[in-house]
Structures are given as C-alpha cells and as structure tokens.
C-alpha cells in the first residue's frame, strides 16, 4: 500500500521510510471529558476508502505528516506537514 508518499519536504519517498501512527485525530484538551479522551485513545473508524493518518518520515526529514490515502485502492491523495502544512500531491 502507498508505495510512495509525497513528503512536502522530501518529495516522493518509498513507504519503507515512514512510520505510521494511525488516525490523524486532534488531541482533546487536557480537561476534556472522559468520553472525548476514550474516543481519542481507543476508538477508530477503520473506514473503507479515504483516511487521514499521521505518518512520520522516519528515514527522511523526521517530520510528522498527515497522509490522506484510500484504504481500498491504496492511492495516496496527498500529504502535509502536521505543523507547517504545505499540502503536496503525488
């Protein structure tokens, strides 16, 4: 899946260079209710189709990216730096 990921800093790179954390969810506020935290820590959609995930360019620029990809077709729609943005398409 996702043979090559378009890192906004490094260009198209093979998936072997990345580490995947999982769903790109926002962290709740520290005082958010328990339900919000349970959702953040444990509950996942596991969709068939489009999905945004945190990917770390471990063997490259070491930036965390949000990679949008299709879990069914493996197509990668794009990637952006989680802090700096800079959406890039393959």
């Amino acid at each position: 899946m996702a043979s090559r990921v378009p890192c906004p800093h490094c260009g198209l790179r093979p998936k072997e260079e990345f580490t995947i954390k999982g769903a790109a969810l926002p962290r709740p506020a520290p005082d958010a209710g328990e339900a919000a935290w349970i959702e953040y820590v444990y509950l996942r959609e596991n969709p068939r189709g489009a999905y945004d995930e945190f990917w770390h360019h471990t063997s490259g620029c070491r930036r965390w990216l949000v990679v949008s990809r299709n879990t069914l077709t493996h197509d990668v729609y794009g990637a952006r730096d989680v802090a700096l943005g800079g959406e890039t398409q393959p």
Partner: peptide
C-alpha cells in the same frame, strides 16, 4: 542533500 534509506539504513 537529503535524508533517505540506503537499503535498510538511514
């Protein structure tokens, strides 16, 4: 210059 894998090694 860029960081990348050479085989299995960063």
């Amino acid at each position: 210059a860029t960081s990348t894998l050479v085989g299995q090694i960063g």
